[in-house]
Write a protein that binds this DNA or RNA. Structure first.
Lengths: 213, 213
DNA sequence: TTCTATTATTGGGCTCAGTACAATATTACG
DNA sequence: CGTAATATTGTACTGAGCCCAATAATAGAA
């Protein structure tokens, strides 16, 4: 634990935080793709290797908030005893995690997507998060439903739930400064997959005046 | 179109096919991660650059069948006129595409996952396919429902559907030689997300004897 | 058959992410 | 103050992906 506190006045900031900030600046200045790890570490005042002490990939720094949320979700899911209503518990656990996230904790990858040019480059790394969360949920569902992890039902449900959570994050971020709490978006997305696409899409079609053309 | 047919007896095989075969061999021999593009092209008898004439990434060769299926799905979805039942048309289009796929057309990434070591390395590239298909479906749903492409309902539904298709492919591949037609797996996966997770998971729980512990 | 425009293939060079490993600095703690 | 644990750095390397110009092969016209 080298860089935690200092004897003198200002507490020295951790290398990790310095790297995160330097990366955020450079991504906004030069886009994600055109920023090299060497540039990040130079601005942060550390060596290139130090970057890899804290992140396993350049894209990791884009998803700090999301990774933390997934970590917390994993803890929540593990704490749920067997035999409870899987879907209800899943929803509750997600909302518990998400309710602690302020409206300013937008993952770097989802902020100013246009200026950072983070449309396609970061898509893949975001999908890795979707997959990790999907795995967590699949394990949880398999346990709750007494089914195998590679069961089609389990995997489909886990994918749908993880996807819904992902979409909620995205739309929340896209809504800009005036965005409502993340939990509200999360609830909506859960409703869609919980009640089923046939009713969700059907209701959506009915609720709209049939636009010609 | 240089290497299509030859005057003499055996028609010379296209560079693309040769590369695909060489890659498949090497992935099985040395795993995906330990196979370099240079090795592939050497065995195929072409130069390294020729690889990039046919594939934009090393992982592309793992998903040839899936990419073709997604291309066909795109065509099918574009051909559907407005105003039809979005979910029913989506299901029908998917089944049309998938019914043409023989039980031996398993994407390379999903065959012998253990021996190829294609568990984690290829996960990400597979997710890129999920995302591309998700985009296609979102466009289609937005058109059918007269909603925006970045609408939460549209995105959630598209994600769930694309995920279900992805899961169907995976479970189908995992079922080995005795696997049933892909369309059957696809139908099952569609049912899960169509009827809704609350009923799907609820029904699943009811249909099982409550296993103790 | 010969010429020509098109397309496929190749060679060379280059950037940069990610890895490995050993050496050194820094911190915490007894 | 000494020492063990941890953080940081230096150096070197592999391999994917990209760029661009040069060359080979092909199809089609004449």
């Amino acid at each position: 634990m080298p860089a935690s506190q200092n004897a003198v006045g200002r507490p020295r900031r951790s290398s990790r935080a310095v790297i995160e900030d330097a990366a955020a600046e450079l991504f906004l200045e030069n886009t994600y793709a055109l920023t090299t790890i060497e540039q990040i570490t130079q601005r942060a005042g550390v060596s290139r290797n130090t970057f890899f002490n804290y992140f396993t990939a350049k894209s990791d720094v884009l998803w700090v908030e999301l990774d933390a949320a997934i970590d917390r979700l994993a803890v929540e899911l593990r704490a749920i005893p067997n035999g409870r209503s899987a879907l209800a518990e899943m929803r509750a656990a997600t909302l518990r995690v998400v309710s602690q996230i302020g409206v300013d904790r937008v993952p770097l990858a989802l902020t100013q997507v246009d200026v950072m040019g983070t449309a396609e480059e970061t898509r893949v790394s975001g999908l890795a998060r979707l997959a990790r969360r999907s795995d967590l949920i699949a394990d949880f569902l398999a346990r709750q439903l007494s089914r195998r992890c590679d069961d089609l039902l389990v995997l489909s449900a886990a994918n749908a739930l993880s996807g819904a959570i992902s979409v909620a994050w995205t739309v929340w971020a896209l809504d800009g400064i005036g965005r409502r709490p993340l939990a509200e978006y999360m609830s909506e997305a859960f409703d869609v997959v919980s009640t089923g696409l046939s009713s969700a899409l059907g209701a959506a079609a009915e609720s709209l005046a049939p636009l010609p053309e």
